Amino acid sequence: MGNASRAAIIGDRRITGLSADVIAELVAELGPLWHEQHQTKLMSRQRKRAIGAGARHRLVFVDRLLATLVHLRHGATHDVLACWFGVDRSTITRAIGEVRPLLAERGCTIGPGVRLRTLAEVVDHLGASEETGIIDGTEIRVRRPASGRKDRDRFISGKSKQNAVKTMVVTDGDGRVLFCSPTRPGSCADIPHARQSGLVTLLADGPAVEILTDAGSQGLGARTGGRVITPPHRTFKKNAPDRYEEMHERQRTAHSSRRIRVEHGIAHLKNRRALARRLGRREHISDTVQAIAGLLSRQQTADLTSTRQK
C-alpha cells in the first residue's frame, strides 16, 4: 500500500473509527509485540536458511494493523481488503489472525495507562471509584453450525429464535465500556451467564458496589447481598390499591432511565459491522468482541480527555 492510501486511512476517522493519535499509539504498542511473536514463531521450527533471508513482507505491520481495524469497523471481506492493500487474500487472513488477539489482550482503557482486562478488575475499579456499573447481555448473530453437530441447538437463542452467541457488556454510569465477557452460545440465559463468568462470586465477596441490570437478572440481588439492582417486582397482580399502577410504573421508568446508558454502549459496539452479524468462524468471535470493546473504550477515553482539556 502506498503512503498516500495509508495516510488517507489514518486521517479519516470514518474508516477505522479511531483518531490518528490512537492509531499511532496502537502502532507503537503492538508493533514490538507482533515482531517478537513473529520471531518466536520463526525460531520454533527447523530452518534451511537463516532468519531474515528470503523475500520481505509485502504487508508491513502498520498495514496489517490498518487492515484489521478496517475489517473490525466495516466487516469488509478479506477479498476486498486484499484488493485494497495489493496482496493475496491469505495474507490478509493471516494478518488479521495475528493482530486481532493482540488487540483483544489490551483490555478496556479507562485512563492514561489504566486498563481493565478481567471482570475482577472491573469490580475492584467500581468499588474504588464508587461508581455505578451497568450490565446487560447482547446477542450477535452467527452462522448455523453444520448439520450433525451434537451441540447444534445450543446456539439457538430463546429470545430471537436465531443462531447467535451472547456476551455480557459492563459500562459505567456514562455508558463507557468497561468490559465484554467471552461469548457463550445463544441458549445461555443471563443468570447462568453471570454465574459462569464469576460475577456472582465477585460481587458477593468483593467491595460494596451498585450494579444495575434488567429484569432478566431477577434473583441475582439476593445472591450478591443486594449489590445487583433489578426493576421492582410487581407486588399486586390483581386488585391493586389506588395509585399503585402509577407508582410502579414510575419506579420502573426511573430504573430504566439510569440503565439506558448500557444500551448506548452496546449500540456503539454494534456500530462496528463485525458485530452486526458474524459470518466468519465462531471460534474467533470472543477475540473480535473484546478487541472492539478495547478499541471503543480507548477512543471514548481519548474523546473524554480532549473534551475536558477544552
Rank of each mutant, 00 (worst) to 15 (best):
G31Q: 12
Q299W: 05
L220H: 02
G97K: 03
N163I: 15
L103E: 03
S147D: 14
G137Q: 02
T307D: 12
R56C: 06
L212R: 01
L202T: 12
R261P: 01
R250K: 08
V114C: 08
L18C: 05
A128V: 09
I15H: 01
P101C: 08
H38M: 11
C83R: 15
T40S: 10
H193T: 10
S286G: 13
S5E: 12
D287L: 08
D79T: 14
A146P: 00
E263N: 09
Q309H: 07
I51A: 06
L116E: 05
S90E: 11
G173E: 12
R117M: 05
Q37M: 14
K237C: 07
T301Q: 05
G173W: 01
T68Q: 04
A291K: 02
L81V: 09
P101V: 05
P192Q: 07
L30A: 07
R47L: 13
R184G: 04
G225K: 06
T183S: 05
R176M: 15
L102M: 10
N3W: 12
D174T: 15
L119R: 03
I156H: 04
G148C: 05
R115Q: 06
S286W: 05
H233S: 14
F85G: 00
D21P: 11
W34K: 03
T132E: 09
P241G: 10
R250M: 09
D124Y: 00
A146N: 02
D205F: 11
E25N: 10
R298M: 13
Q162A: 14
D172G: 11
I191Y: 04
L269G: 01
L279T: 15
K161F: 08
V228H: 01
R45M: 13
Q46S: 12
G221M: 05
Q39R: 15
I51C: 03
V99R: 02
A276S: 10
D242A: 14
N271H: 13
H35N: 10
R184W: 11
I110G: 00
D21L: 07
I156M: 12
R184H: 13
I292S: 04
E36A: 13
V123K: 00
D242Y: 04
R89G: 03
G2E: 10
L81S: 04
L119N: 04
V123Y: 00
F236M: 06
N163E: 14
R308W: 10
R141G: 04
R56H: 13
G133D: 04
G294E: 11
A55V: 12
S197L: 15
A95D: 01
S181V: 15
I51D: 02
A276L: 14
E245R: 11
I292Y: 01
S129V: 12
R49W: 11
K166E: 11
L26H: 03
R143P: 04
T93K: 03
A302H: 08
L30W: 01
A76V: 14
R272I: 04
R273T: 09
T16S: 14
K41L: 12
L178P: 02
A104I: 04
D79A: 13
G175P: 10
T288L: 10
P112V: 09
A194R: 02
G31V: 08
